[in-house]
Design a protein around this nucleic acid. Sequence first.
DNA 1: AGTCAGTAAATTGTTGACAATCTTGTTGCA
DNA 2: TGCAACAAGATTGTCAACAATTTACTGACT
Lengths: 237, 237
Amino acid sequence: MSTPAVSPPATRDPLTEEDICRRVRDSVLEQRLSPGTRLTEDKLCTVFGVSRTLVRRAFLLLSRDNIVRLERNKGAVVASPTPEEAEQVFEARRVVESALIAQAVARATKPDFEMLRMHLAREKDALATADIARWIRLTGEFHILLARLARNAPLLAFLEQLVFQTSLIIALYGRNGSPSNCRGDDHDRMVAALEAGNAAEAVDILTHHMNGIEAGLSFAPRDDMEDLHQIFAAKAS
Amino acid sequence: MSTPAVSPPATRDPLTEEDICRRVRDSVLEQRLSPGTRLTEDKLCTVFGVSRTLVRRAFLLLSRDNIVRLERNKGAVVASPTPEEAEQVFEARRVVESALIAQAVARATKPDFEMLRMHLAREKDALATADIARWIRLTGEFHILLARLARNAPLLAFLEQLVFQTSLIIALYGRNGSPSNCRGDDHDRMVAALEAGNAAEAVDILTHHMNGIEAGLSFAPRDDMEDLHQIFAAKAS
DNA sequence: AGTCAGTAAATTGTTGACAATCTTGTTGCA
DNA sequence: TGCAACAAGATTGTCAACAATTTACTGACT
């Protein structure tokens, strides 16, 4: 109940294209929209109660962030990164986030750490109350909050993209047997290392953290054509 | 004359939004459009012979790449990064490009180096024939070609943004007394280091290269209001 | 039965007109 | 003369209708 998950049926809001983007993003993040889902303009128009112009602009922005794929005369589908793209996203995150953490150590102040610890508390709360959607969002946000301390707008914006891509990838390839999200007390330990001014250790924890997430993925039998496999299975039965 | 600098007065071309983007980008890159210039929709419509829809979409894309700034009800102006933003762009480039070079060393093959050396020859040719517009473009492209060898799409796309921003920054703050662009034989030496498999040295050259460019800038008296300063100076004379 | 062509529905692409907003120039008033 | 309110022009924001394309369906033919 922390955020208005579903707004009233879209009346008298002068929604802007950024609102649409955020709503779509959140829906993907909380796995109400799965990768590969087709998004028709009309549907979103009626859902949000706006005209096609806005939806169109939103699609353009979302495609720029690799959240949807736009094909001419075909419309928009929620992006479903290939294993190769996934690998590259993880590599990019290791590079960018390591640098951001090093900077963050140099610039963070006491109130910053309090803010981080408050966030960690929220994460734990969400997990304790089994509010998984909120937990997923918060674990992603942690990395953003951390990155913000480095005070580098371009790198921050880029990491935001990457963090979102990571969520998409986990939604696609995560073995739901072992929750491959940000698990364990890695976040706590990173904050501790940061507060101790130990950038090297913080980076080290992060790297292992990311490797752990990546290792928890399964690219096995659904590279591009997950649907096809299901169809074939159904036919054979 | 290497590229059609100005197309015939915009007749019978089914231009796409990417074309508009590219044309605007190139114009900024070759300093025909200076930072702060206002771009009205109607003007571009008549120039390119397209409807407002396309121009609008192009603006949206360009704003995402920080090439233009979009303000509601105010239209688009060519971006003019502040000194703080400039500093952050350079920092981001150091981070991203170092990692890309390290990867490039690991993955580059013989034909890659031939390609790079051919590019270096083109750079020298442009400089020799005093084709400055082409030279500016080529020096930027060098870094893109290098980055492409690392085979990481997100990092590459991000670096493309940053390289363009760098050009903007040089256009804004470069002391035209000392050509602060990619100067000297840094590019040659980087290729040599790469071919020798010496990633550390290549990164080192790059860092000095970037520092040199940054040091050649002058943020002195024109932070946001360059025009005002000129006007006051004129009044005083 | 299976395949292919043709047609109908649905969806996206484009355009032009109209409304809202900002900018600029002018007029009236203290 | 200086300032403020007003008005005209220009520019951007929004929308709804129309055109082009793709997709789905139906039916005839082999």
